[in-house]
Design a binder for these strands. Structure first.
Length: 624
RNA sequence: GUCCCGGUAGCUCAGUUGGACAGAGCAGCGGUCUUCUAAAUCGCAGGUCAGUGGUUCGAAUCCACUCCGGGACGCCA
């Protein structure tokens, strides 16, 4: 049996690449040392496990047929202890070289990843990564729009943590500016009028206040203009004029409130603080229910940047980064390939969200020490974030002190959640759908299915299972497709217990675990833990190959920020296990050695699958 | 108008730095439970990869143009 340390740890691709690179160097001394022998998994298992596509580029370069190049390579190839011998019949098609791993090699590689880390080694140089996620607004309930920012952001954060990096989550709470001042003024007025008790204030009430405050301030200024322009008469003008006067008064109160907030007036700040606390308590509870690790200490609201904006803008002006344009202040980005300037201060002196976002880049890179800043933010902000990234780079804010290279600012953009009609997901009346209502309905529907599939559970058990299944169903749907695309939200599809769904994966994990419960009942001890792995049956081989892919897949999600790759992997692994479980008796294996080897394989599968689901942020279960 | 993102089987979607006849799931048809959770598994059927042209030994993948759908475009956030 080969020594795992001899074959580049656990990774068959790397091990084969080394052997092939050596053979290519021997066969073609002219090629440089960095030549990539292009090892990939073979799509059709009937042809082999892996293939090298090295012969095609070599054939082209040396003016020979790729099959001749392949023949030269295999003449120098030594796969002893790793794979079946490669012969002329291994060359196929235009010049593919097919490779079939040996069962004992697979067993050795699996043994190498059968560790607590499951083959994922800590990075040589851990990086600090900031993940911007969730992005709630105060005085508003979480709705579907926050689902993806929370679920995707948390999955990315977990992935990077799993890879051994230092992750700082940042919930960029929308807690500042004129809209917030409007609610603050409104709540203050309502409280003073005795219509609201701040002690028992809840989020639905706040949301109502927010809406009415917005409506009061915005009341038909445009309508009045139209009435004047088209001369609809003094009566219409007077009616609208009254409304507008009210709106102007409300707006004036809001602006006054904003000034007092900015000045730190204790009474006003106390009202604001109450709004903040009521909102965040509810928001963090939803995050907890979603199994998203977003905590109070992860909040870095817009308000926390308020005091930094004026000095930052002054700095930008002084250094000539920002310039005036029509009374406003902009940063031009033409030289960075963006023809729309980034507006950072309005003509009236007010700041914009780009200003706050630049301050956030600066703090995240300069103070928090981020080498990467990842934004789990919707694709509608694509241009905005490009501008902010470019403007921050131009200002030098994206480069850590003393560092040679700037931090990497990355937008993990996602598409919209759509309703059945293909339009953005809304209630019949056009309101946003409350996230909590969505979770409640998913859990309720899951409960019905659980009761039907397995009537033996106690009500308590059923509730717990339904909760996990419902949450997993929603999260998995959100994570399992390419995030840039929109998707249609459909309960029946995500809660289907067959196919590529969260419930199916939970079930697959339960099956891997239940075998040990059953084994315990039959008096089988833990001797299998140290039993030698044996990979003989085709289903065992397919499962082994799937398990060995795990570290590389997690790594690729960390690089690409695409959690759906890990979902696809988990689904593949679950499928490989199901096939194995069907074809290979474990507890009734023909002999004890086979049984123990298979138990160990089940255990490794269970741990990898549970780890993958954990990285995705899905809740898991012991039984269903 | 400019820019960005999508378009793959009836439906929902994968498709790694270009590689073998384009893969799953659902829906349809047909096998497999006295045996480890059948919420499973095995098989059949189903596709001009939106279109045209180009690069290449080789293109769903890269380039150009066209069509369709969505989005964003300095004084909201």
């Amino acid at each position: 049996m080969p020594d795992p340390s001899d074959i580049a740890a656990y990774d068959p691709v790397r091990a084969l690449a080394e052997r092939f690179a050596a053979a290519v160097r021997a066969a073609f001394p002219q090629v440089d040392a960095g030549f990539d022998p292009l090892i990939t998994a073979t799509k059709n298992p009937a042809l082999g496990d892996f293939q090298s596509n090295a012969a095609m580029p070599l054939g082209k370069r040396f003016g020979m047929s790729p099959r001749d190049a392949a023949t030269k390579i295999i003449g120098q190839l030594d796969l002893a202890g790793l794979a079946e011998p490669v012969t002329a019949s291994s060359i196929a098609g235009p010049g593919f070289i097919n490779i079939r791993l040996r069962g004992d090699t697979l067993a050795a590689l699996l043994t190498a990843i059968d560790t607590p880390g499951l083959g994922i080694a800590p990075p040589a140089a851990p990086r600090t990564v900031v993940v911007d996620l969730c992005g709630v607004n105060i005085a508003k309930e979480m709705h579907v729009g926050h689902l993806r920012a929370t679920v995707i952001g948390d999955a990315l954060a977990r992935t990077l943590e799993r890879l051994g990096h230092r992750v700082i989550r940042q919930n960029h709470v929308g807690d500042w500016g004129l809209p917030i001042a409007m609610v603050t003024a409104k709540l203050d007025a309502e409280t003073r009028a005795g219509r609201i008790d701040t002690g028992t204030l809840d989020l639905p009430t706040l949301t109502r206040l927010y809406r009415s405050a917005q409506a009061e301030c915005a009341r038909d200024l445009r309508g009045l203009e139209a009435v004047r322009r088209f001369g609809l008469g003094p009566k219409a003008e007077a009616e609208l004029g009254e409304q507008v006067a009210g709106a102007e008064a409300a707006m004036a109160r809001a602006k006054d409130t904003l000034l007092r907030l900015q000045a730190g007036d204790p009474a006003t700040v106390a009202v604001w603080r109450r709004i903040y606390d009521v909102t965040m308590t509810a928001c963090l509870a939803v995050c907890a229910r979603l199994h998203a690790r977003v905590r109070a200490e992860d909040s870095a609201g817009e308000s926390s940047y308020a005091a930094e904006l004026e000095p930052m803008v002054a700095d930008l002006v002084r250094r000539g980064i920002a310039e005036e344009s029509d009374g406003a202040l902009v940063i031009r980005l033409d030289e960075l390939g963006i023809d729309v300037p980034c507006l950072i201060r309005k003509a009236d002196g007010g700041y914009l969200y780009a200003t706050t976002d630049m301050a956030a880049v600066r703090r995240r890179v300069q103070n928090l020490g981020a080498a990467r800043v990842i934004y789990a933010v919707g694709s509608t902000q694509l241009l905005h974030l490009r501008q902010v990234f470019a403007a921050s780079a131009k200002a030098g804010y994206a480069t850590p002190p003393g560092a040679a290279a700037p931090a990497s600012l990355e937008h993990a953009a996602f598409g919209s959640v759509l309703g059945d009609d293909g339009r953005p997901f809304k209630t019949r009346s056009g309101d946003n759908v409350r996230l909590e209502d969505l979770l409640d309905e998913a859990v309720e529907r899951a409960g019905r299915v659980v009761a039907e599939k397995n009537p033996g559970h106690s009500p308590q058990e059923r509730r717990e299972i339904a909760e996990a299944v419902g949450i997993a169903a929603i999260k998995y749907t959100d994570l399992s497709t390419d995030r840039i695309k929109d998707y249609v939200f459909r309960f029946d599809r995500m809660l289907a217990f067959e196919g590529n769904t969260g419930p199916y994966l939970l079930y697959a994990l339960v099956r891997t675990r239940s075998i040990f419960r059953k084994g315990g009942e039959r008096g089988i001890g833990g001797g299998w833990r140290s039993a030698p792995l044996r990979i003989e049956h085709p289903a065992e081989k397919a499962l082994a190959l799937a398990l060995l892919r795990y570290p590389g897949v997690v790594k690729s999600v960390g690089d690409s920020l695409e959690p759906h790759r890990l979902c696809q992997y988990a689904y593949d692994l679950a499928g490989a296990f199901s096939t194995f479980f069907d074809a290979c008796p474990v507890l009734q294996a023909p002999d004890d050695a086979t049984r123990d080897a298979r138990l160990r394989l089940c255990d490794l599968t269970a741990r990898v699958l549970a780890d993958a689901l954990g990285v995705l942020g899905l809740p898991t279960l012991e039984r269903m």
